[in-house]
Structures are given as structure tokens and as C-alpha cells.
């Protein structure tokens, strides 16, 4: 009887882990590739631990992406614009800092420019409905926050488990490697960043 229970437990665990992985890769591979273009950037900061990321953050939140607004910044010479996307995030909890509203605006580089979607290769745009943990800098001149270190400061929650962005792009190596988080529980993650 005891052996049967252990066997059942192993089978159920394998099924759950399989479902989690399927979800992870589905989320970011459903994007229509045909009209996408890529952007490459040189990242200013490199974080090697969650603790460093937490200490450097102005605000850390757990939330859900409610809506998406594209905006473009025309460069000084007017030759083109650089695309950005503003996301309205519904805040579920604040892990660090103070936020006066129940939503916050977060910006990412990349977005829609002349009907073409541009994305940073190692920092795909968030999507409506994404449940995320975001390590944010101070609100800047456009009234929004940027994510610290781009993909390094963004984690996705799937089925109450936390994944780093590097985990969602298995085909490439990633700047998030030293922060790789693969399916740890939300409680463990919050314990880690505060430890």
C-alpha cells in the first residue's frame, strides 16, 4: 500500500512538472514571428544574485499585466523613432518600496513601429495576463518605471511557480543565467530575495 502511494506521488509530480514546462514554452512561442524584427542592446548592469537585484531596486512588485500601450520616442535627428511599450500592471503585492495606487506603469524597450513589432532578442515584451515579479527602478521622466537590467529584473509566475526569462528562451544563452530560476515556489522566491 505504502509503495503504491509513493508510486502514485511520483507519477503525479511528473505530470505536474510536465504541465508547468509546457505552459512556460507556450506563453512566449505563440507570438507571431512573421512580422517581428529584433533589437539588440548592450546592458549596463549585470546582476549575479537576487539579493543584489533586490537591493538595487526602488520598487519590487508582484502583479499582473492589464494593458499595453505602444509609444515611440523620436530621436533628435528625426530620422526614426525608438519603440517602447508601457504596461499597466495590477499590483497584487509590494515586496519593496511604496506604490500609491493599485496599478503601476512599467516600460520596456521594443514595441510597434510602422505596424512592425520590434523586440529585444533576449528580453521579449510582456503580454496581457502575464503574472510577473518585477524589480523596478525609480519612476523616470516619462512617468513609468523600467525593469532593472532588462530581462534580469523580470520573473514570470506560472501555476504559483517562478521562472526567470532565460528559462522561457531555451534556444539562447542569456544574460539572466546567473539568476536562473526554474519553477521554485513563490514563497521560496520571496524568502530568497529577502534572505
Amino acid at each position: 500500500m505504502k509503495k503504491n502511494n509513493i508510486f502514485l506521488f511520483i507519477i503525479i509530480s511528473i505530470l505536474i512538472l510536465t504541465l508547468i514546462n509546457i505552459n512556460v514554452f507556450d506563453v512566449y512561442e505563440n507570438i507571431d514571428d512573421t512580422k517581428n524584427r529584433y533589437i539588440d542592446v548592450s546592458w549596463v548592469k549585470k546582476y549575479t544574485s537576487l539579493k543584489d537585484l533586490y537591493n538595487d531596486s526602488y520598487v519590487v512588485i508582484i502583479g499582473e499585466v492589464l494593458s499595453t500601450n505602444y509609444r515611440n520616442i523620436l530621436v533628435k535627428s528625426n530620422v526614426t523613432s525608438v519603440p517602447f511599450t508601457d504596461f499597466v500592471i495590477k499590483i497584487n503585492s509590494v515586496l519593496k518600496g511604496f506604490v500609491s495606487n493599485d496599478t503601476i506603469v512599467v516600460s520596456q524597450t521594443g514595441g510597434l513601429l510602422n505596424d512592425v513589432l520590434f523586440m529585444i532578442r533576449d528580453d521579449p515584451l510582456m503580454q496581457n495576463g502575464d503574472k510577473v515579479i518585477l524589480f523596478l527602478n525609480k519612476e523616470e521622466k516619462y512617468g513609468s518605471h523600467f525593469i532593472l537590467g532588462g530581462p534580469q529584473g523580470r520573473f514570470v509566475i506560472l501555476n504559483d511557480h517562478v521562472f526567470s526569462i532565460g528559462e522561457l528562451q531555451p534556444q539562447t544563452d542569456s544574460i539572466t543565467k546567473s539568476l536562473w530560476t526554474k519553477g521554485i515556489t513563490l514563497d521560496d522566491f520571496t524568502d530568497d530575495i529577502r534572505s
Binding site: 542592446v41 548592450s42 546592458w43 549596463v44 524597450t109 525609480k138 523616470e140 516619462y142 523600467f146
Partner: peptide, 8 residues
């Protein structure tokens, strides 16, 4: 601004 990247 403080985008996190130095070059694009």
C-alpha cells in the same frame, strides 16, 4: 533615460 541599456 534610465532604460538599462547603453546602446541599441
Amino acid at each position: 533615460g534610465e532604460t538599462g541599456w547603453s546602446g541599441i
